[in-house]
Amino acid sequence: AEKTGIVNVSSSLNVREGASTSSKVIGSLSGNTKVTIVGEEGAFYKIEYKGSHGYVAKEYIKDIKDE
């Protein structure tokens, strides 16, 4: 049951290796980017990222929809 969301930041949002603010940053997404959410862990969504997965803070994702 995948969902999509939109990155809701003015600059960019860090994509992390794990569901923690201390996890390594593996990339970033600019505002209004559409993401595919494959799961959630605590305050983070697990998303599809560059052929693999990454984690982003839930508070910066809006317009969550079921695909």
Rank of each mutant, 00 (worst) to 15 (best):
A57I: 12
I6T: 08
N8Y: 06
K62P: 03
I37N: 00
Y60H: 13
I47Y: 00
D66W: 07
K34C: 06
I6D: 02
I61F: 05
G54I: 01
G51E: 09
G5L: 04
L13M: 10
A19P: 10
E41L: 09
K50M: 15
T4K: 08
V15L: 03
K34Q: 12
G42E: 05
G42Y: 06
S52C: 06
G39S: 08
Y60Q: 07
K46W: 07
D63W: 09
A57L: 13
K50R: 11
E59V: 13
I61T: 02
V7I: 10
I37G: 00
S10V: 12
E48A: 10
S30D: 11
S20Y: 14
S22L: 11
I37R: 01
Y55K: 00
T33P: 02
I47N: 00
Y45I: 03
E2S: 11
Y49T: 01
N14P: 15
G5M: 05
K46I: 14
N14E: 15
S30H: 12
R16A: 04
I64D: 07
I6P: 02
K46V: 09
I6S: 05
Y60E: 06
G5N: 03
I6M: 07
N32M: 13
T33W: 07
V25F: 06
N14Q: 13
G5C: 04
I6H: 06
S10Q: 15
A57T: 06
I26C: 04
Y60F: 11
S10T: 11
Y55D: 00
G18S: 12
E40C: 06
G51M: 09
S10E: 12
K58E: 02
N8T: 13
G42P: 03
G39M: 05
V35L: 05
A19Q: 03
Y45W: 13
A19D: 02
E17S: 11
S12I: 14
G27M: 05
V7K: 02
V35Q: 01
S11W: 09
G31M: 14
G27L: 04
S20H: 11
T36C: 07
A19W: 05
S10G: 10
K58R: 08
S22C: 07
I26S: 02
S30I: 12
D66Q: 15
I64G: 06
E2Q: 13
S23M: 05
R16D: 00
T4F: 07
E59N: 07
T33D: 10
T21Q: 14
S30V: 12
V15Y: 02
G27V: 02
N8F: 06
K46E: 08
S52A: 15
I6G: 03
V7S: 04
E59T: 08
K34F: 10
V7W: 01
F44Q: 02
A43C: 07
Y45C: 03
G31D: 14
E2F: 07
G31V: 09
G18P: 01
V35D: 00
S30M: 15
K50A: 12
K24Q: 11
E41A: 08
I64R: 04
I64Q: 06
D63H: 12
A57Q: 11
V35E: 00
N8L: 07
L13H: 03
E17I: 13
K62M: 15
V38K: 05
Y49F: 13
G42T: 04
I47D: 00
F44C: 04
S23E: 04
K65E: 13
V56I: 10
G31F: 13
T33K: 05
E41V: 12
E67V: 15
T36R: 14
K3R: 12
K62G: 12
I61S: 01
K65M: 14
K58V: 05
V35K: 00
G51D: 10
Y49I: 03
Y49K: 00
G18I: 08
A1F: 12
T33Q: 09
L13F: 03
G27E: 01
Y60V: 04
S22Y: 09
S20P: 02
S11N: 15
N8M: 13
N14K: 14
I37K: 01
G51A: 08
I6V: 12
S28A: 13
N8H: 13
R16N: 10
L29N: 00
G5V: 04
I6L: 08
S20N: 12
E40L: 05
S52P: 01
I64W: 09
V38C: 05
E67K: 13
A57V: 14
G27D: 02
N14C: 08
I37P: 00
V35I: 10
G18A: 12
I61Q: 01
K65L: 10
E17K: 08
K34P: 08
G51Q: 14
V25Y: 04
S52M: 14
Y55N: 00
I64M: 08
Y55I: 00
V35H: 01
N32T: 06
H53Q: 07
E48S: 11
V25P: 04
K50H: 10
S23F: 06
L29M: 05
S30P: 15
D66T: 15
T33M: 11
V25L: 06
V9Y: 04
E67S: 10
S20Q: 07
Y49Q: 01
K24T: 08
Y45S: 01
I64E: 08
K3H: 08
K65T: 15
V56E: 00
G5Q: 03
E17W: 08
S28Q: 15
S11T: 14
I37S: 00
E67L: 09
R16Y: 14
V7T: 08
G42I: 03
L13D: 02
F44I: 01
I6R: 10
E2N: 13
E2K: 07
K46T: 04
Y45R: 01
Y49P: 00
T4A: 06
G39A: 08
K3E: 04
G51W: 08
G51S: 08
K50N: 15
V38S: 05
V38L: 15
G54H: 02
S30E: 10
